[in-house]
Write a protein that binds this DNA or RNA. Sequence first.
DNA 1: CGCGTACTTAACCGATAAGTTATTTAACAT
DNA 2: ATGTTAAATAACTTATCGGTTAAGTACGCG
Lengths: 131, 131
Amino acid sequence: MPASPDHLSVTLNALADPTRRAILARLSLGETTVNDLAEPFDMSLPAVSKHLKVLEKAGLISRGREKQWRPCRLEPEPLKEVDMWLAKYRAMWEARLDRLEAYLTQLQAAADPPAPPVVTDKSDTQKDDRT
Amino acid sequence: MPASPDHLSVTLNALADPTRRAILARLSLGETTVNDLAEPFDMSLPAVSKHLKVLEKAGLISRGREKQWRPCRLEPEPLKEVDMWLAKYRAMWEARLDRLEAYLTQLQAAADPPAPPVVTDKSDTQKDDRT
DNA sequence: CGCGTACTTAACCGATAAGTTATTTAACAT
DNA sequence: ATGTTAAATAACTTATCGGTTAAGTACGCG
């Protein structure tokens, strides 16, 4: 027993493949069949079937039963989990962008000779965060 | 040549491992050394070094040089990419939650004929507004 | 210099992943 | 019954992953 990995890892792993993300993108337009999903890809049907199984195990899709077709449907729940994980870091890339913006503003000010010396407030652009 | 995979796949793959996510979480508290990063894990130093290389190739960390140490720093840019990809689906899970809420409300109303529906809103904890 | 510390690289190994072709199951149509 | 279409499963190949131990590199110091 390989000690079942956490759900988030399973989800991220499922998403870490362009084919599978393309499948999800296609499914975001609506339910469809396996053959229909497979059509745009340059690979065999069983290969697509395997990708679908990976997505299904991650809970990213579900499969119904209608006549001889097994329509796939997008299940966005796990994406929400990913988003919640990401949220913990969102402030960071935003902060970094803010710093970049401040830096650019400062450059702009420096390149503008007659203006008053806009105090280059370094305490606001350099936040060395060591606890 | 395995035809270099897209950056988003590389990033998601790097994130699809609990050890690597733990390393990022640690780095979100501040820069630190490899030995320090490795300390909490029950694996050899080279194993951690490999994980760091995966994270570095995804652009999720950068490494400096200070004396004999190679401090690692979190680089949140790629996380922003993930967020941007996720954004395309955000409306979906929110819509689905809305439907669930409506369904629950309806159940509540049906089960409770005379009283006003005392909505037990468990799903009101998300206030997510990025573009 | 030589030695220790910090870390990386090399070589290897078992497990898993991603693809293939061939076979099988399931549901319908004739 | 037989055949057809839709899809899954089996069996196999090859490559990558995640870990190991052992050796190598880079730096600081006495």
